[in-house]
Simulated assay, not measured.
Amino acid sequence: MSKGIPTLDEVNNFLGEDSLLPVYFLAGKDKFSLENALEQVRNAVDPLIESDFDKEIFSLDKGVDLNSILDSASSFPFGSKKKLIIVRGFENLSEKAKLLPYIISPSDFTVLVITHNAELKSATQQPFKELAAKGYLFADRKLRPSEFAEWTIKQAAKLGLKLSRDNAYMLMDFVGDEKALVEGQLQKFAGFLNGQGEITSEIIENLSSSTKEYSIFELQDALSAGNKKKSLKIILNLLDSGNDILRISAMLSKYIYTLASAIEFKKTNVSEMEAAKKLQVSPYYYKKCVQARYMFNEKRIHNAAKALLNLELAIKTSSIDPKTVATILISEMLQ
């Protein structure tokens, strides 16, 4: 993604009544950020809408013709200051360049909001190039761990809750770095704390661990103990629960990297607190890794890293079933 393109979280900076853009193109895989940005635009434009006829929502995954939508965007409002047209599912459109003529000359009385629920890998092709040039393109950006921790702390504060940086990392360790999942956990904590107080490590461990029958971290615990049967059962359960095999692989790669780093830190007498800080993980997560009885071994870590590499190659270069790959992965990691 090209530098200089504002993120979905920055949409609010472009929503002044006298400076509304004619087009907001919202792109990204993170549905939470996408929907939040869409809601912000909708809230800014709604006060200018006096007739329901001046507000339309279309979905491009249902065979709707883009030209008919653009014709509607080009027609005058029924009596409102603005028209609001929301178009979902641009990622489903095969002939995306059809949007280009409208982007070059958009209607000044219409606010056209388009969502593209997929990663936008390049802004050099049309219509994305023109959208970026006009300042109409907003794209999701993968946050670094430190940035995601900061975002989590701010979201907790909006709910009236305190959350330390270490515990923000701990929450990420438990539920991952998907904003929707983290937001769901924060809402759960807010209910538990009646909207005030501090989210402690005990609350995170007790409430987050019950989100699924099995979690990535229970898989790591089973691997740490060298329990092949339980590890296989958990990883297959994770796949059945809708978890993507590459996401599981990414989490396990982080686990193996932390183990390998922990061995090196131990050789140089780096404290657990300092090591966790260097790796941008919670002290809780780091301590769990250090306590891995079976996996805290250089040869086994090497085997595990090799097995994870083999998994990614198999997934990306063949049509092999994820469950088959997962079974091979566990067998190779714990051979």
Rank of each mutant, 00 (worst) to 15 (best):
K3I: 08
I5S: 08
D9F: 00
D9P: 00
L15N: 07
L20K: 11
L20S: 07
L20Y: 05
V23N: 09
Y24E: 03
G28D: 12
N36V: 06
R42I: 09
N43C: 05
N43T: 12
A44K: 08
D46Q: 13
D46W: 01
P47G: 08
L48H: 10
D52V: 06
F53Y: 14
I57M: 03
F58P: 00
S59M: 03
N67T: 13
I69G: 07
L70T: 05
S72E: 14
A73E: 11
P77R: 10
F78T: 14
S80C: 05
K82M: 10
R88S: 08
G89T: 02
L93G: 02
A97D: 14
P101H: 08
P101K: 09
Y102K: 07
Y102P: 04
S105K: 15
H116V: 00
A118I: 01
E119S: 09
E119R: 08
K121F: 04
A123C: 11
A123R: 03
Q125N: 14
Q125S: 15
Q126M: 11
A132M: 03
R141W: 00
L143V: 01
L159Y: 04
K162S: 14
L163F: 05
R165Y: 04
R165N: 10
N167C: 04
M172W: 00
D177R: 14
E183T: 10
Q185T: 03
Q187W: 03
K188W: 02
A190P: 08
G191F: 07
F192W: 10
Q196H: 13
S209I: 01
S210V: 04
F217Y: 09
A222H: 08
L223M: 13
A225C: 02
G226Y: 06
K229H: 06
K230D: 12
S231T: 11
L232S: 13
I234M: 03
I234W: 02
I235M: 09
L239G: 00
S241K: 06
I248A: 12
S249C: 13
S253W: 02
I256A: 14
T258H: 09
T258R: 13
T258W: 04
T258V: 14
A262P: 02
I263N: 06
K266P: 00
K266C: 02
K278E: 13
V281N: 07
Y285D: 01
K287A: 11
V290N: 04
R293E: 15
Y294R: 06
R300L: 10
A305D: 13
A305T: 12
A305I: 05
L311H: 07
L313R: 14
A314E: 15
K316H: 02
K316M: 03
E332G: 01
